[in-house]
Write a protein that binds this DNA or RNA. Structure first.
Lengths: 338, 338
DNA sequence: AAAGTTTTCGGAAACGTTTTCGGAAACGTT
DNA sequence: AACGTTTCCGAAAACGTTTCCGAAAACTTT
């Protein structure tokens, strides 16, 4: 599988290597006719400039790395599509790795990517604070990094986040306005600020509308269906069933629905449910699930654009934080039937 | 952002560049003590061998490219996880690109990946036959390619496929045994052999059990929810409602369910539904959807292993085709209630 | 102690580009 | 005709490695 190199072309056409290079890089130091001649004959010969050699000399790979906690739920794939949308247009390749909700593998991922000389990194944290010193070090060296979705406020980098506080507030408000009082919140992993923001939004709404509130209304569930189901089953067992549940995300909400159905409880008549981060399942599940929808595609696009800005400024553009907005889709799972 | 190079290390430690290289590559031509000394001091200095330079000289990138039609449904992400599982262990990076169900962008993807000197390619076709000459040319040059899921029989390469024929047969058989007679098949895009295999499995079952069959029982729907929904709505409008439907995949099946519900038809009492390629939604939808489950993870693993074999044999290992097996999960959507 | 082996290391070429530098050719100006 | 500019191109260095070749050093053997 012998590749044709620039030398082969130069020899064949009786010109210097540098001339061929100039032809391909559209530099000014070349006569139009020779450039066209070279381009024509070289492509005839099937010549492709070797990108590895180019990267070596230019010290730039035109690759960026993306690290996400997981890959299976639709959320991150959608974000990644947004990322690719802008980066591929700019001639960048996107390397995706998953950290499996594990900060240690996250760090490994980052190092592999770094070893591969990616020009920049887009990261959604598996856990906060654990790799902070490492990221801080990279940022100080001018390595372009943008965090999205799961971020750590303490890291001084560009970020793209969703307004979790606000939409948790609205989701809770919706339940309150429907007349529900005993509203529980099944939160995500509380070591993530995203989860804490949603908790705060929930609490704010409860306070604002003077709904009696007890700290044990907030239960850490996580992000997966089985976790939501388990928490709900435990409550049913304890006969501590709330009137409504605001869940950390859709899978958890659906787990809740499964548990409720199994126990013979009706939704929303007995218990209302609201999810978060709108997934395809929201429309499919029975009853259809109310949920806050996030602009996943735009999150990806914005993060990629911020990263481009950092890369073009060699990592020393002022860092900015983008807070994106969502929408509350109200469906049957949370409409009071009276 | 100055990187520390092998020269810096050599100068600092008063040894030759080649010695440092040997230390890092664990070659025999070096004394144990010097090796350890170099390793220790070099890592202290924060030296990382530059992978780009390594690739340039070794003519190997330790990258492989994966091209899939889409990225949003869970199917391909699950396969990709299987792929990564084996490749990352072997020190390979996985570059994922999506062709958007478009053979032209598929070809572009492949060329970009090729330009990036990936050591091999894993491809699931957007459309068959259109890029065949190109793939044939690459294979002839010894470029390692393995196709999976959506393949073209006419391309002489290693492949990993699901036994679509067999499991379409079983799915249909199940419906027949439940007592349904007028069974329609909503097929996938018929330019894919995968779809044609499922059609043939369906027909075979109908013939075998002497169920009256008419060619118009087979309707091309596609792979997306809205497509299944549209086809079903058209049938309802025409008052040509079958007793049961075997759908090309789960999204189509769920689209069917949506249409049926909207029309006030009950599942499975009025119409039974069976899906294919088991998705998370199958358990969530109401009623739970019977579906054939594919071993997505294993498909990815097997494809990656076949590719490794090709890469290690420099693209000239005999090509093999793996046909993987599945399982029929019977749920409420297809159980005759009598 | 000389000769032969083996181990260990340094020097230099190579991988395929881009880019700097300098010089030749072409052109215009006086 | 002599000179200064500009345009175009070639030679060579550089990017950071690995690897080949040969030589020095350290052992063995006689």
């Amino acid at each position: 599988m012998k590749r044709i190199t620039i030398k082969d072309v130069a020899r064949e056409l009786n010109v210097a290597v540098s001339t061929v290079s100039r032809a391909f890089n559209d530099k000014y130091d070349i006569r139009k006719e020779t450039r066209e001649m070279i381009l024509k004959r070289a492509t005839e010969m099937g010549y492709h400039p070797n990108p590895i050699a180019k990267k070596l000399i230019q010290q730039k790979t035109y690759n960026v790395g993306v690290v996400v906690p997981e890959f299976v739920n639709a959320y991150f794939p959608e974000v990644i599509i947004g990322i690719q949308e802008v980066l591929i247009k700019k001639g960048y390749q996107v390397l995706v790795m998953q950290s499996n909700e594990n900060p240690a593998t996250e760090l490994e991922n980052v190092k592999t990517l770094e070893d591969n000389m990616v020009d920049g990194l887009l990261i959604s944290l598996s856990g906060e604070s654990l790799n902070n010193e490492y990221y801080a070090g990279m940022l100080k060296k001018g390595y372009p990094i943008v965090f999205f979705n799961r971020v750590d406020e303490k890291i001084p980098a560009s970020k793209v986040v969703f307004d979790d506080y606000k939409w948790a507030y609205f989701a809770t408000e919706h339940l309150i306005k429907q007349g529900y009082r005993k509203i529980y919140h099944f939160s995500g992993y509380q070591h993530l600020s995203l989860s804490r923001n949603r908790i705060n939004g929930y609490r704010k709404a409860m306070e604002k509308f003077n709904v009696p509130f007890d700290p044990h209304y907030i239960i850490e569930a996580g992000f997966f269906m089985h976790e939501g189901q388990a928490v709900m089953e435990r409550l049913i067992e304890k006969e501590d069933v709330p009137q409504a549940i605001f869940a950390a995300n859709d899978p958890v909400a659906i787990g809740v629905i499964k548990a409720l159905k199994k126990a013979g409880l009706r939704i929303p008549d007995d218990v209302a449910v609201v999810g978060f981060s709108e997934s395809k399942m929201a429309e499919i599940v029975d009853p259809p699930l109310s949920s806050v929808s996030q602009p996943t595609f735009e999150i990806g696009k914005s993060a990629a654009e911020l990263l481009m800005r950092q890369i073009e400024a060699d990592g020393f553009a002022p860092s900015e934080t983008l807070v994106l907005d969502g929408k509350l889709n109200i469906r049957a799972s949370s409409i009071k039937m009276i």
